[in-house]
Computed example of a mutant assay.
Amino acid sequence: MRGTAKLPTKAQTGERPDAVSALRTSLAALAADLSIEVTPKEALRGAAGLGELPPRTRTFITRLPKGSFEETLAAAMRLRACGLNPVPHFTARTTADATTLARRLDRMVVEAGVEEILLVAGSNDRPEGPFASTIDILKCGVIESSGLRALNVAGHPEGHPQANEAELHRALDAKNEFAARTGMPVALVTQFFFDAAPVIAWEERIRVLGNKLPIDPGLHGVTGMTSLMKHALACGVGASVKVLAQRSGNLLQFAQIHAPDAMLGELAAAKAADASSMFRNVHMFPLGGFERTVAWANSLRQGRISVTPEGRVTVAA
């Protein structure tokens, strides 16, 4: 299913005559360094579509609840051998201590050529060591001495089940402070979503509050409604699940393959309308549709997109 996205209004664009061109420019910017998620098993077995990714594509390696560090390291090495840029997940609550963290980061950098990671708190109810949050990790001094060139951390447009809004703002301030203090590039990566409006509003809100970190909004991949619902419930995606539930009420829609064209268009329209927008590149969550998602992403990168005068965005299948 292909969706639609509205172009910026005349008021938003300042009566610019070529809004379609502005939208295309934003679409190209969001696709310039597009990243994608892969499981360790998909990386190790050489999942269909993996070889179709352009060289140096930032390829995030999911840390599954029962996964091991050695499996993640092997996946990172395989991705590097394929000419890709592996970005492994590190979870604060599964890290025993600072020494273990330093040793594991060193192995990632030296053995797999890792240049950046995604650092998240993790879903464990209780931490295995002294790190209950990403902020605890950032305070320990290991990241900046690890040899990493960049850091990715989680952004939470729809809130977080284990933190209130005030706590999220304090954490965001600490992430900004870390970037300013160390000079290390830090970016926010969001979970996938099904309604772009709350994400656009969140970006504007945290920018007003002082956020200076670029944001890579997460988009679901090209997959079926069953897979979308399963992953949404498993990941605890917030208010936009209601939008997905409304769409899944139609049996015909339930059987269709869904692509994130409409949400991509809305993000691009917001970026085109506001030069200060912190949206940087989209991050893809294939959710079981890896090969189709890679094909969609490659079409986006190659500019094989149609944009109607009314602002409907369609990425070539």
Rank of each mutant, 00 (worst) to 15 (best):
M108G: 07
D195C: 11
M225F: 14
A154Q: 05
A273Q: 07
V313K: 09
A48M: 03
V222N: 06
H258F: 11
D195F: 05
E71I: 00
H231D: 08
V142R: 01
R45T: 13
V222M: 05
R292Q: 11
G224N: 12
G122R: 02
L64M: 08
R301V: 03
D33S: 12
R93Q: 01
A43P: 12
D261K: 02
I135L: 02
T99N: 09
H220S: 15
R304T: 07
G3T: 02
A121D: 00
N298D: 01
A171P: 05
E128L: 13
F178T: 02
N298P: 02
F192W: 08
A81G: 11
E158A: 07
L44W: 03
R304A: 11
H220Y: 14
S21H: 14
G129M: 00
G129S: 04
P260R: 05
E291K: 15
S68T: 15
T99P: 02
S248D: 09
T226V: 08
A22E: 13
S146L: 05
H220D: 07
P185F: 02
F285P: 05
F194T: 15
L101C: 06
P214D: 01
G14A: 06
E52R: 14
R205Y: 03
L264D: 06
D173Q: 08
P86F: 03
R56M: 14
N211D: 08
V120D: 04
D274R: 11
I257T: 15
A262S: 12
F90H: 13
E111I: 04
L228I: 07
N152L: 06
E167N: 07
D33Y: 05
R80K: 15
D216T: 04
P198V: 10
A11R: 12
W202Y: 07
R104V: 00
S299F: 04
L119N: 07
S145R: 14
A11E: 10
E116T: 02
V20E: 06
A239L: 05
R45C: 10
F131R: 00
G224V: 04
T25A: 13
L188Q: 03
H156W: 10
V282T: 12
L264F: 10
A81Q: 12
K6Q: 12
V153L: 04
R126Y: 00
R280K: 12
D216K: 11
L34P: 10
P309R: 05
L79T: 11
L287E: 11
F290S: 07
A316C: 06
V208F: 00
V222K: 10
A11P: 03
S276K: 09
E15L: 15
V20F: 04
L53R: 10
F69D: 01
S276C: 06
L228C: 09
S306T: 11
H283Q: 10
E37Y: 00
G14F: 15
G289C: 05
T100R: 12
L251R: 13
W296P: 14
K66T: 14
Q302P: 09
G129Q: 00
G289L: 07
L23H: 09
V208Q: 03
D274F: 02
T95K: 04
A297N: 10
E70Q: 14
A150I: 05
P157L: 04
A245D: 12
S248E: 08
E266T: 02
V294L: 08
L44P: 06
R170C: 11
N298Q: 08
L44K: 09
A29P: 01
P127K: 03
H220A: 14
E15P: 01
G265Q: 09
R247W: 08
K139I: 00
K66W: 04
H283P: 07
R170N: 12
